[in-house]
C-alpha cells in the first residue's frame, strides 16, 4: 500500500466513561477499561518481591519504594502547588534521624518510630521551610537544597548524633517480607491518597495557589497557609521514607542528607511523566535498578543520570506516563483515504 493513501486516525475511547463515574457501571467493558490500569499497578507492585531473583534485588525494591515516595512528593509540590523542591535529602534526613533517635535512645519499636517520625518530621521540615513560603520564585528550591547540606556539616562539626560514624544498631523490620510489603503498601497508600487529594476541592485551591495566587488572596485565603499544608503533606511522604530507610539499613548517618535523594526523584519524575503522580513511581522503578547496576562506576553514575535526563527532555519531555495515558485513552488505526 502506498504510504500516501492512508493516514493515522485517532479515536477517543469512551469520553463518557471518563467524564462521569455513573456511566462506568453500565458495562463490564467500560468498568474494566477504568479499573484495569489501577489493577495492573497494584498487582504489579505486590508481586514485585516474588519475582526478584535474589535477596539483594529484593532490597533494591525497598529502595525503589523510598525513592518513589520522594518522587511523588516532588511531583505533588511541583505540579500541583507550584513549589519546586530540592529538599528530598532534607525530608529523608529529618525522618531518618528522628526514627534513629527514638529507636536507639528511647527503645521505641519501628511500629512507633515510623509514624511519629513521619508526623513530627513533617512538622519540623515545614517549620524549616516556612520562612521562604511567602516568597515567589526560586527561593524555595534554593533553601530546600541548602538545609541538608548545612545539617550534614553541623552534625559533622559538632560531632552530635553519632557524628561522621552515624547511629548504629537500629532495630530492623525483623523480616524482609514485612519490610518490603510495608514500603510497597506505603507507596500505594500515598499514591492513591495524593491522587484523591488533588481532585478534592482543596486540590483546586492548591492548583490555584500555583496558577493564580493573587486571586486566592483576594478570596480571603492565605497562600502561605496552603503552601505550608502542602509542604507538610509532601515532607510527610519523605520523612516516612527516611524513617523506613534507617530501619532497613539499621544505620543512620550523614549520607541520609546526600544530594542523591534530592536529584534522583526529579529525574524519575521527568522520565515517568510529571503531574501524574504514578509516573514518578514508574520512573523510580526504572532509574533506581539501573543505578544499582551501575554501582561499580561509583560517582560516574551521575553522568548516566544526566544523559538519560537530557535524552528524555529532548525526545519525550512529556514522560512515559503521559504518553502511555494518551495511547490508552485513544486508539489509533490506519485508514485508507
Amino acid at each position: 500500500m502506498n504510504i500516501e493513501q492512508r493516514r493515522k486516525e485517532r479515536l477517543d475511547r469512551g469520553i463518557k466513561v471518563r467524564t462521569d463515574g455513573l456511566y462506568a457501571l453500565m458495562s463490564w467493558r467500560e468498568l474494566s477499561y477504568l479499573t484495569l490500569p489501577r489493577l495492573v499497578l497494584i498487582v504489579g507492585m505486590l508481586t514485585l518481591p516474588f519475582i526478584m531473583p535474589s535477596m539483594y534485588w529484593q532490597r533494591v525494591i525497598s529502595i525503589v519504594c523510598i525513592y518513589a515516595l520522594l518522587a511523588m512528593s516532588f511531583d505533588f509540590l511541583a505540579h500541583f502547588v507550584g513549589l519546586v523542591s530540592l529538599g528530598g535529602a532534607l525530608f529523608i534526613g529529618v525522618g531518618g534521624y528522628l526514627a534513629a533517635i527514638m529507636n536507639t535512645y528511647f527503645g521505641m519499636p519501628p511500629l512507633l518510630t515510623i509514624p511519629i517520625a513521619t508526623v513530627v518530621g513533617a512538622g519540623i521540615c515545614t517549620l524549616f521551610l516556612l520562612p521562604c513560603l511567602p516568597l515567589r520564585g526560586v527561593y524555595f528550591a534554593i533553601v530546600s537544597l541548602m538545609y541538608p547540606l548545612a545539617l550534614a556539616r553541623v552534625i559533622e562539626a559538632l560531632d552530635i548524633l553519632g557524628g561522621t560514624d552515624g547511629i548504629m544498631g537500629i532495630e530492623s523490620f525483623g523480616n524482609r517480607w514485612v519490610e518490603q510489603y510495608f514500603v510497597i503498601l506505603m507507596v500505594l497508600l500515598f499514591l492513591f491518597g495524593a491522587r484523591r487529594l488533588v481532585n478534592l476541592d482543596i486540590g483546586l485551591v492548591f492548583r490555584a495557589v500555583k496558577d493564580n495566587d493573587q486571586a486566592v488572596r483576594a478570596s480571603g485565603m492565605s497562600i502561605t497557609f496552603y503552601k505550608a499544608v502542602a509542604v507538610f503533606i509532601a515532607s510527610a511522604m519523605g520523612c516516612m521514607g527516611g524513617a523506613s530507610l534507617v530501619h532497613i539499613y539499621m544505620w543512620s548517618g550523614i549520607s541520609l542528607l546526600a544530594l542523591d535523594f534530592s536529584i534522583l526523584p526529579i529525574a524519575a519524575t521527568v522520565i515517568g511523566g510529571a503531574g501524574t503522580l504514578v509516573g514518578p513511581v514508574l520512573g523510580c522503578l526504572i532509574l533506581v535498578p539501573i543505578s544499582e547496576l551501575l554501582r561499580a562506576f561509583g560517582t560516574l553514575r551521575i553522568v548516566f543520570y544526566s544523559l538519560i535526563l537530557v535524552a528524555f527532555i529532548v525526545f519525550r519531555s512529556e514522560g512515559i506516563m503521559v504518553y502511555g495515558q494518551r495511547k490508552y485513552h485513544q486508539f489509533e488505526r490506519w485508514v485508507k483515504i
Binding site: D201, L204, V205, R207, A208, N212, V216, M221
Partner: peptide, 14 residues
Amino acid sequence: RPYYSLPCYKNLVI
C-alpha cells in the same frame, strides 16, 4: 484573573 484552566463553576469552588 480567572482560573483559566478550570470550568466556570469550578472557579467559584476556590
